[in-house]
Design a binder for these strands. Structure first.
Length: 782
DNA sequence: GAACTTGCTGAATTG
DNA sequence: CAGCAAGTTC
């Protein structure tokens, strides 16, 4: 088979440049996966590289699996002795550590357990409690994320503590939790997700032996989604490429959306400096989307300053206009989306649609609307299979089967199903474990022998539990994984308790457990890994792994959608404070990341792209007014079609921007001209548009290169609407959040007149818009 | 010890 | 509004 015939020129160079460092800047939809898979196949088939010398690293299992399958397909007529290793960063680390962790000399053994985030939070919580800190003031979740952040930036507990200012009480507390947390993990022979990378890097640094071995083994390394790598992952790559520099990284700086998780965009921006003699290849032809969709994406992302800059182009037709919809509230938005999906499926039963949202909590309304419309959907994220309580319980039993000293697992299931071991007994176990300085498991063994101050009932209950686990441990020594899973479900009483409940919910849980058994059976058949690997896979499985490519309708966050494509895409909740998220508003870098996120969302679409927003939305159970996202304003309005009922932000923004430079700059396209509106009938929309116009001036427009233009724009706006924006430094300019003695929090929409006699139009959630004279209103900044 | 009630606090994105 | 911890009752 000719591996190069169906590639374009750039792709071909990317595939055949096999020696030396290579940076492939691959725009969205430019055939990135195809290049990687062809490259692997090419190395094997044309350059006679033994597959075992190739390592390809991805971020998700799903991507890894897809890559494996595609390579296999390309090489279907080549006989292979081995397969290239296609793996996620985390499973690569597990693989190394399962073999060599003892070389670290930190007391860890090869049978270490992996703590996922939920486990980590549990440990953190226990640490906070045991150190006597107030759990309400020091939320375990927050502390855990601080610890994780520290670990990812190369700080251990000691370094972190040393960095904490003495007066910063909270951080000092976190530092103490951090230290205890690390101790607990170590004494449980457990590693959290961050440790997997940290320990691997440390091991490769420490042991020349191990480092050499893997340098010799992996002579050709590929890294996908390189823009998402963090400093530890970079260090890992560095260590693996000491002997050779056949390192090929593929990424797109415009799609870097994991900065909050420690991803370091400079890894890709500075790759050429880190690896001298790097060849750079740009893949800029997009095969996925229509021209209009690409225009929208480009028009948004070009507002970012921190980027390498590239322009996607396509030979695809311009396609349909983007479809815009302004909903009264979030419920209406969901109903609109469901109705449109129904329509698309009616016209094209085989099409696939995706609903993309910023936060998982938005999914519920769409689930309800789709269910009501009788449309089947698939949802990614939220509670994934391995995160369900019953699955986690059984997995905990399995962990105990391999290592009964795993206290986290033990405490999780010691009384589920209920077997008469209550809080009193648990506290007693905790106390004694600490006193004797032995594991909970050993403590239970001692207590099960009976003794002073223990009720006979308690002793019997503990004995029972001890026996159950002992049996599981024995079973794990001789039975295949699936049999141990069955035992963990049946012999622990778990299944019986669920059956006895006799409810629909219990029924569903039983089905999930059946599913777990099925997974284990598959595992027994396919790989000879055994229970250990089965549990590792469960721990490392991720949300995006649940994505089913053949589903007609998929609900997922924008983050989870990265790397996927759909003929029909809905980007919903395009509102200020939601997308971009409020937590990013203050920070320029964070806002740029949000913008890249918008870019990712837009470029998922092949043919039809919908953008929607709601005027009102429930937050914390309270209904709040919301403004359209600034990213909507950054799209070319003339390639949007307005599907809103009645007046909308778009209809007004379009009318009001007619005279302004943005229109002139985009005069190329004649679309939208037929939809001229005077704006006079659109009271609320008018104020929203006003708000935008004002804000774009405050922010200084989209590019730094046009100060002169910004001034004329400002002057014109001022004369047109009789405003004097930002002339009174002390006053409340539109966009400011204010507090009113009677109406509470509100948003300034408009300001008329100057100095302190200015008239303000302020929108108060729940009270509507009020016109107020600034000097009498008693407003304060909120 | 278990099941139920109340009252509080807090959700951004994920391997 | 929801999920969780502490408090209450059987």
């Amino acid at each position: 088979m000719d591996l190069l015939s169906d590639l374009n020129e750039q792709q071909r160079i990317a595939v055949t440049t096999t020696e030396g460092p290579l940076l492939i800047l691959a725009g969205a939809g430019s055939g990135k996966t195809r290049v990687i898979t062809h490259r692997i196949a090419y190395l094997i088939a044309e350059r006679d590289v033994p597959p075992s010398n190739i390592l390809a690293v991805t971020f998700t299992n799903k991507a890894a699996q897809e890559m494996r399958e595609r390579v296999e397909k390309l090489l279907s007529d080549v006989r292979l002795q081995s397969a290239p290793l296609v793996s996620t960063f985390h499973s690569l680390c597990v693989r190394l550590l399962r073999r060599d962790i003892a070389g670290l000399e930190e007391g860890y053994t090869r049978s270490f357990t992996i703590y996922d985030q939920d486990d980590s939070v549990r440990v953190t919580k226990a640490c906070v409690k045991d150190l006597g800190f107030d759990e309400a003031r020091l939320s375990a979740r927050q502390v855990q994320s601080q610890i994780s952040h520290a670990k990812n930036s190369g700080l251990d507990a000691e370094l972190y503590a040393a960095r904490v200012e003495s007066h910063d009480e909270k951080r000092a507390a976190i530092a103490r939790v951090f230290r205890l947390y690390e101790e607990r993990l170590r004494s449980n022979n457990a590693l959290d997700f961050d440790d997997l990378l940290i320990k691997t890097v440390r091991l490769l640094r420490k042991s020349d032996d191990v480092r050499e071995r893997y340098n010799d083994r992996f002579r050709f390394i590929l890294v996908d989604e390189y823009q998402d790598t963090n400093s530890l992952q970079f260090a890992l790559i560095r260590l693996l490429t000491q002997k050779q520099q056949n390192i090929c990284v593929v990424g797109d700086d415009d799609q870097s959306v994991y900065g909050w998780r420690g991803a370091d965009i400079t890894n890709i921006l500075n790759f050429e400096e880190q690896y001298p003699n790097t060849q750079v290849i740009r893949l800029e032809q997009n095969y996925r989307s229509t021209q209009n969709i690409l225009d929208a994406a480009g028009s948004v992302v070009k507002n970012n300053t921190e980027r390498k800059g590239k322009t996607l182009w396509t030979s695809n037709p311009s396609g349909d206009l983007l479809r815009y919809y302004q909903a009264l509230n979030a419920e209406v938005e969901a109903r609109f989306v469901a109705a449109r999906i129904e329509e698309h499926l009616r016209l094209e039963p085989k099409t696939r649609a995706a609903v993309l949202y910023r936060t998982n909590s938005q999914s519920r309304l769409f689930e309800e609307a789709l269910r009501r419309a009788g449309i089947a959907y698939n949802i990614v994220g939220g509670f994934s299979f391995y995160e369900r309580a019953e699955v986690r319980d059984i997995v905990s039993y399995l962990k105990l089967a391999l290592n009964p000293h795993d206290s986290i697992a033990l405490m999780r299931v010691i009384n589920s199903p209920p077997r008469g071991i209550g809080k009193q007994t648990l506290d007693e176990i905790e106390r004694r474990a600490k006193d004797y300085a032995v594991s909970h498991w050993e403590t239970i063994a001692i207590m099960a022998e009976g003794g002073e101050r223990l009720a006979a009932r308690t002793v019997a209950a503990l004995k029972n539990f001890h026996q159950i686990i002992t049996k599981l441990v024995e079973a794990s020594g001789r039975e295949p994984a699936s049999e141990v899973v069955k035992a963990a479900i049946l012999d622990t009483g778990y299944a019986n308790t669920l059956k006895a409940e006799n409810s629909d919910e219990a029924e569903a849980r039983l089905e999930n457990l059946q599913e777990l058994v099925n997974a284990a059976v598959d595992y027994d058949n396919e790989e000879a890994g055994g229970l250990r690997e089965f549990i590792d896979a469960a721990a490392l499985s991720s949300d995006t792994d649940q994505y089913k490519g053949d589903a007609h309708v998929t609900l997922l966050t924008v983050h989870s959608a990265k790397g996927l494509e759909f003929p029909v895409v809905f980007i919903v909740g395009m509102e200020d404070g939601l997308f971009p998220h409020a937590r990013s508003a203050s920070d320029k870098a964070a806002l740029e990341e949000e913008r890249r996120l918008a870019y990712v969302a837009i470029t998922r679409a092949e043919k039809y792209l919908y953008v929607t927003h709601a005027m009102k939305r429930r937050v914390y159970g309270e209904e709040l007014a919301s403004e359209p996202s600034q990213f909507l304003n950054e799209m070319p309005l003339e390639i949007m079609e307005d599907l809103s009922r009645g007046a909308s932000w778009l209809s007004f923004a379009r009318g009001s921007s007619r005279l302004e430079s943005r229109q002139a700059a985009r005069a190329l396209s004649g679309a939208g001209d037929s939809k001229r509106h005077t704006g006079k009938t659109y009271d609320s929309a008018e104020s929203i548009a006003e708000f935008f116009r004002q804000r774009s001036q405050q922010v200084g427009g989209s590019s730094a290169s046009a100060p002169a233009k910004a001034t004329t724009q400002k002057a014109r706006a001022a004369s047109a609407s009789n405003n004097s924006p930002s002339s009174s430094a002390s006053g409340f300019v539109p966009g400011t959040h204010v507090r009113h003695p009677k109406y509470g929090r509100g948003l300034v929409l408009r300001r008329e007149g100057s100095d302190d006699s200015a008239k303000l139009t302020v929108s108060f959630p729940g009270f509507g818009q009020k016109k107020l004279i600034e000097k009498y209103a008693g407003l304060e900044k909120a």
